[in-house]
Design a protein around this nucleic acid. Sequence first.
DNA 1: CATGAAACTAAGTACTA
DNA 2: TAGTACTTAGTTTCATG
Lengths: 185, 185
Amino acid sequence: MAAVPPISDSPLKTLAQRILPSGPSVELDAIDTKLLVELSRDARIPQSKLADILGMSSPAVADRIARLKQRGVIRGFSVDIDWERLGNSTVAYLSIVAAIGHDQSVVISHLLEIRGVEEISVVTGSNDMVVKIRAHGFDDLRQILANEVWNIAGVQQTVTSIALVHAEPENVTERMLRAISKHDV
Amino acid sequence: MAAVPPISDSPLKTLAQRILPSGPSVELDAIDTKLLVELSRDARIPQSKLADILGMSSPAVADRIARLKQRGVIRGFSVDIDWERLGNSTVAYLSIVAAIGHDQSVVISHLLEIRGVEEISVVTGSNDMVVKIRAHGFDDLRQILANEVWNIAGVQQTVTSIALVHAEPENVTERMLRAISKHDV
DNA sequence: CATGAAACTAAGTACTA
DNA sequence: TAGTACTTAGTTTCATG
């Protein structure tokens, strides 16, 4: 194992927690699945409405949600923002080749701190990492690259693919849940 | 413009709505930003708590949220699921080269219908598209590629990068909002 | 700010290992 | 019998005109 550069301010410990296998795989029953589908459509739906839909009492729903949280299935509830509307419409994918002798997890730690970075993957193939960045126009993207990404020791080469069009299926979560579920929902 | 293959069952119209520029850019004031930050942390927080945090009345908060929805900033509220926990832990990025003479939007339409597809980008550079797919193990990924992606007319070549490690910053939405905001939050 | 709706708490019941 | 998943009822808290 090669020498590892110092980490300075980067939270390597939390990184390890973030990228290591996260425990036992969880099975959902039909009610859990339907519950998650409804929450994916509107996370601010009242428990009482969920109770009606699922045919059970409101405290039972609260229990289910708490249990799904506790089992780590539900990470939280969030707002879905249209970044285009806020001018944050430049999406880019960076293909990164890492320098030999640098710990990749350190590189990841640094990347995770960069504004605009949405996802980082260590991948198979001719590149080492794929990073998705969202920025406020080309100028902003250029700044992020020049001032942040290219300053990370261990990043040897980057190829930037700028998204001209960016699309997502309408209900990713719901579709994924249905695909996973062995029951009808 | 070359001849366009028939679309059959794909909803091109809704695609156009999905990928075309979405209207005027919206400016957020300090309160909007703080509101969105709170909602991004926990979308199921009661209005009254938001009212306390923001130092305003509960109906005022309801108004703000309604206006943000109406202006298209808030697309909705959703549940954040840990797919790893559900066994859906295989992430892959496809680099696609499209065949000449095929309308890219048709290819996108078909890709959007495929189970596991989370994002599609038409990009600059030597590839035409980048597609992010999440699957239930390698076998499932192979099936999606073989039965779905490679059956799309217009997909000439794909290179698949499988994610060995996949990480995301902890609070992408919050950080992005702070970056956008001209005010302190 | 008042009124109806919804969430939380506690106590109790049915099914199961 | 202990444990799990639920219900009902009473109280507090919340949303909305």
